[in-house]
């Protein structure tokens, strides 16, 4: 599943944003086909993202994806929110759990503050059962109007 019926808040102007608004989630089912593509552009051929056995040797139940790719998913979430005229100012993400193979990863965001044209956002990614894989915060700027 790669789309969502959640309310969409794209291409935002600051006047249309309120504290508590939810960003349109960014959703990807993850497996070797995602990770191999990302490895190919980022030269990130990590054994634990390439086969289950390598991940098991590190103590995980199966292969898991790159933190850098979740980082990119979070940025994709923010880009859809800010639209073409907004800017990402700061992103801070901590990884809490591995993104195991065959999980659907959903990146979420909630507006927590507005100061002028600057918007604070709580971020997280979660897997199918709702466990959080990464948590963080972002600061973005939106066009006035």
């Amino acid at each position: 599943m790669n789309s969502s019926s959640a309310p969409s808040i794209p291409a935002s102007a600051i006047s249309r944003i309120q504290v508590g608004d939810q960003l349109q989630p960014f959703i990807r089912r993850t497996d070797f086909d995602n990770w191999n593509r990302y490895a190919a552009v980022n030269d990130e051929f990590l054994p634990h993202s390439m086969n289950d056995e390598a991940a098991r040797r590190e103590g995980f139940p199966k292969a898991f994806g790159m933190g850098n790719l979740q980082w990119s998913y979070v940025h994709s979430l923010l880009r859809a929110f800010i639209g073409p005229d907004g800017s990402i100012l700061r992103v801070d993400v901590q990884f809490r759990n591995p993104n195991l193979r065959e999980q659907t990863v959903t990146a979420h965001g909630t507006v927590t503050g507005i100061d002028g044209t600057t918007v604070s956002i709580d971020l997280w990614t979660q897997e199918d059962e709702g466990a959080r894989l990464a948590v963080g915060k972002a600061l973005v700027s939106l066009p006035s109007g």
């Binding site: 634990h48 040797r57 590190e58 103590g59 790159m66 933190g67 850098n68 980082w71 800017s87 990402i88 100012l89 700061r90 992103v91 801070d92 993400v93 901590q94 990884f95 990464a134 963080g136």
Partner: peptide, 13 residues
């Protein structure tokens, strides 16, 4: 080490 993991990133643009 047995494992080396990405703990997170904090980026100012």
């Amino acid at each position: 080490f047995r494992a080396g993991l990405n703990g997170g990133m904090n980026c100012t643009y």
